[in-house]
Simulated scan of single mutants.
Amino acid sequence: MKQTLRFEQLSCRLQVEGLPDVSVGQRGEAIGIITGWSLRWAGRPELEGRKEHLLALMQVVLPYARHLISGVRRRFGGPPLPVEIGPAGATHTLLLRSSQPDTPPLTIGLDDAELADLVRVLDQLRLDPRLQMPLDLPAPQPLKPREVQGRLPRRQRLAAPLGGAVALAFAAGVSLLLPEPRPQPTAAPQAPAAEPDPSPEPPPSP
Rank of each mutant, 00 (worst) to 15 (best):
L115I: 01
P129C: 06
Y64F: 15
L158P: 03
P134M: 11
Q59R: 15
E84M: 07
A167S: 11
H53S: 14
L127V: 13
P129Q: 11
L162M: 07
V121S: 01
P79G: 10
R151S: 07
G86C: 01
L127P: 04
Q132N: 13
L55C: 08
L55I: 14
I33G: 04
L125W: 04
L127F: 14
L143F: 01
R157Y: 07
P140G: 05
I69Y: 12
L96K: 01
H67W: 05
T103D: 11
L137P: 01
A113V: 10
E114N: 11
P134D: 15
V83I: 12
R73E: 12
S38K: 12
V119K: 00
E46T: 15
D102G: 07
A139D: 14
L118S: 06
M133W: 09
R146V: 15
R154Y: 10
A113L: 14
L143W: 00
L62R: 05
P80T: 00
R146K: 14
L94H: 02
Q141F: 04
W41V: 09
L47A: 04
P80S: 03
A113N: 12
V72S: 05
A116K: 03
H67E: 07
R130T: 07
Q124W: 13
A42R: 14
E84A: 09
L152Y: 14
D136A: 12
G32L: 00
A167H: 08
L55W: 12
P129A: 11
G109H: 13
S98Y: 09
D112Y: 10
D128S: 06
I33P: 00
P63N: 05
T107I: 12
A165E: 12
L68V: 05
P82F: 08
V121F: 05
P105W: 06
R151D: 06
A88T: 08
L122H: 02
R75D: 02
V72H: 04
L115Q: 05
T103W: 09
V72D: 02
R44C: 10
P82H: 07
S38Q: 14
L131N: 11
Y64W: 09
P45T: 12
P101M: 06
L68F: 00
P63C: 03
G86F: 00
P82Y: 06
T35C: 03
A139Y: 08
R97E: 06
R154W: 13
H67C: 08
A165V: 02
I33Q: 11
G150Q: 09
T91E: 15
P101W: 04
A113D: 13
A165K: 01
I85P: 00
V72L: 07
S38A: 11
P79T: 13
R146T: 13
L162I: 01
D112H: 14
R130E: 12
P105L: 04
A88Q: 14
A167F: 07
P101A: 08
Q132F: 06
D112G: 14
G150S: 11
S38N: 11
A116C: 01
A90S: 15
V119N: 01
I69C: 09
T35R: 04
W41C: 10
